[in-house]
Computed example of a mutant assay.
Amino acid sequence: MLMVAYMNDEALKKTLSTGTVHYWSRSRKKLWKKGESSGHLQILKEIFVDCDGDALLLKIEQKGGACHTGYRSCFYRSIDGKIIGERIFDPDEVY
């Protein structure tokens, strides 16, 4: 798993029409294309729906890191805080 993000109807439609993953930023209240600032795009491969029909799982091809902190995944720490992932880019050089 690389990350967890919110997707509204607009983001889903844009993802399906472009093949590049889009999300809805609830804090900024705007649509965003993953990687639009960093170039670390997510290319859609498949979408799966859970049994309740209220959650999606996207199978993607990740270009670069998924996490804005420079790691491939946002889940780069264990529960005790140990870093278990490898930083693949310097966020100060990207953002």
Rank of each mutant, 00 (worst) to 15 (best):
M3Y: 07
I47D: 07
K82S: 13
E46P: 15
A66Y: 10
Q62P: 02
M7L: 10
L58P: 14
R28G: 06
E93H: 11
M7Y: 07
K82N: 09
F75R: 08
I47W: 11
Y23G: 11
R87F: 01
T18G: 10
Q62F: 00
G70C: 09
I88E: 03
A5K: 13
S37Q: 12
L31M: 08
K14V: 01
R28M: 11
K29S: 13
V21N: 05
V4R: 05
A66K: 01
R26G: 09
W32S: 01
T20M: 12
Y95Q: 07
H22S: 12
M1W: 01
A55L: 04
V94A: 14
I83G: 04
T20R: 05
T20S: 05
V94P: 05
G81Y: 12
N8A: 11
I88P: 01
S25T: 13
H40N: 15
Y76G: 07
K30E: 15
G81H: 06
S38R: 01
R26I: 04
G81M: 06
Y6Q: 12
S37W: 07
P91T: 01
V94G: 06
T20E: 07
M3T: 14
W32A: 10
I60K: 07
T69H: 03
T18M: 09
Y6W: 14
L41F: 02
L31W: 00
Y76Q: 07
F75M: 05
D50F: 05
R77G: 05
V94T: 13
K33W: 06
D54Y: 03
H22E: 13
L12V: 09
S37K: 15
R26D: 11
T18L: 11
A55R: 13
D54M: 02
N8I: 07
C51A: 12
A11S: 14
S37Y: 10
K30N: 14
K34Q: 00
L2D: 07
I79H: 15
G35K: 00
H22T: 11
L12E: 08
F48A: 15
G64C: 03
V4M: 09
T69V: 13
L41E: 01
A66Q: 03
C51L: 08
L57N: 04
H40I: 00
